[in-house]
Nucleic acid binder design. Structure first.
Lengths: 111, 111
DNA sequence: TTGTTATATTGCAATATTACGATGAATCAA
DNA sequence: TTGATTCATCGTAATATTGCAATATAACAA
């Protein structure tokens, strides 16, 4: 049905999935990487950097903004975006504890 | 258009996005967590554990299997699934280096 | 063989996502 | 004011995802 049954999962599972969804698209990965690289905020240079239409980039930025991962302030005619370090760290914590689950099945990989 | 323009992104960006997509849905998060918890492989008990139809669980398992994150072997009438430690570690490496990008914007959060 | 159990696959419906052109709103320069 | 620039939003089209019922397949037990 295309609709996720989030009610049947825990808050943690839903949060984890939401964070993962943030960079489950290469364009958003590229945006975040560029924001990290240029540290000082970036605006529409993303449109040149990434080969997507301005409307498309704006849409991806909106998703990242909604999650709180980035923030933007109007700077004259342009908008300056940058990483929100607080939320990024929070995400890192949530995802790391998931990724670092023990894989120590010794050698007896059962399957 | 619903179709991702993966050609315009690097192999790394696409791979990162693919790994992230693996657990961008709470059901797949729950499946992976359960597989970690029960270590010894698990089959259709996932259907009881998670409140989704058998067909739906099977579909999610297929996606995880396609990515290589899990593997399954036929065990009589049932199928035993477990984490593929090698691929999991590979994913951990890829995602960690992305997550651990420096947030040291000092305090001058530009935006 | 027949029935049972466990899983995969198929087909379908509902919703979500990706992408872009066109348009709107805001700011600044002349 | 007018025009140019930058970004957001709207509308739309194409495709993807999620979910399930029904059915198929495979292995075993009797």
């Amino acid at each position: 049905m295309g609709i996720t049954k989030s009610e049947i999962f825990t808050v943690e599972q839903n949060q984890l999935a939401q964070f993962a969804k943030a960079f489950s698209h290469p364009a958003r990965v590229a945006i975040l990487q560029y924001l990290f690289k240029t540290k000082s905020c970036v605006c529409g240079s993303l449109v040149d950097e990434i080969g997507l239409a301005q409307a498309t980039i704006s849409q991806h930025l909106k998703e990242l903004k909604n999650l709180g991962l980035i923030q933007g302030t109007v700077e004259g005619t342009s908008v300056c975006y940058c990483i929100n370090p607080t939320v990024w760290e929070e995400m890192k914590t949530v995802l790391s504890s998931f990724l670092n689950q023990d894989t120590d099945v010794a050698d007896d990989t059962c399957c």
